[in-house]
Amino acid sequence: MKIEDTSLPGVRIITPARFGDERGYFSETWNRRRMADAGLDLDWVQDNESLSRPIGTLRGLHYQAPPHAQDKLVRVIAGVILDVAVDARQGSPTFGRSVAVELSAENGRQLLVPKGFLHGLVTRAPDTVVAYKCSDYYDKASDGAVHFASAALGIDWGIASQGAVMSDKDAAAPDWDDWTSPFSYEAAQ
């Protein structure tokens, strides 16, 4: 298993080893003991899966506010996404900065998105299936979003904002400049 740091502390790219032969491959996508040995001692309580049929399907930028903030481990089962994490911890030296990583069924990469970060993705292939683990249960009252095309964030999603296929909730999400983060850098330390 390969673990890479990104430009945002705590956001990591995890690439599990694959063992292949003429039948295909086998990959251990999570091993609690090995990850704890690598400093990633996380307790997953919920697994989610989404299917996005059209290319350009945008999901995010989502978060769960404290006390139900979530760490997420995102991977692609079929297709390709651009996966994005944004530091939303007030007081953080990287507040408002983002990391974008291509995850695909072919490359087997996973993105670890810690608590205090917004998460979003856009599909780059039809019929993309995304699976992700969460460290806390979904709580409707804690659910929130920031608009993906907020100019202050400067994220290059690779699509025009008017071309994105998204939910009404995501389309109506507040702009970064009009949003107050519920996350604190000091609380995360």
Rank of each mutant, 00 (worst) to 15 (best):
P66A: 14
P66F: 07
P66W: 06
P67Y: 02
A69C: 04
Q70T: 05
D71E: 10
D71G: 01
K72C: 07
K72S: 05
L73S: 01
L73H: 06
V74L: 02
V76P: 11
V76R: 13
I77V: 15
A78K: 15
A78Y: 12
G79E: 12
G79M: 12
G79I: 10
I81N: 06
I81A: 08
L82R: 15
D83S: 09
V84N: 07
V84E: 05
V86T: 03
D87H: 00
D87I: 02
Q90V: 15
G91C: 08
G91A: 10
S92I: 05
S92Q: 01
P93Q: 06
F95E: 00
G96Y: 01
R97K: 14
V99Q: 06
A100C: 10
A100D: 07
V101T: 13
V101I: 15
E102F: 08
E102C: 10
E102Y: 08
E102S: 12
L103V: 09
A105Y: 10
A105W: 07
E106H: 15
E106C: 09
N107H: 13
G108H: 15
G108L: 11
Q110G: 05
L111T: 08
L111G: 06
L111P: 07
L111M: 15
L112T: 03
P114I: 05
P114M: 03
F117Q: 04
L118E: 02
H119E: 04
L121D: 02
T123H: 13
T123P: 01
R124H: 14
V130I: 15
V130S: 06
A131D: 01
A131Q: 14
Y132M: 08
K133L: 12
C134S: 10
C134F: 01
S135C: 03
Y137W: 12
K140E: 13
A141W: 01
S142C: 15
G144H: 11
G144N: 11
G144A: 12
G144M: 09
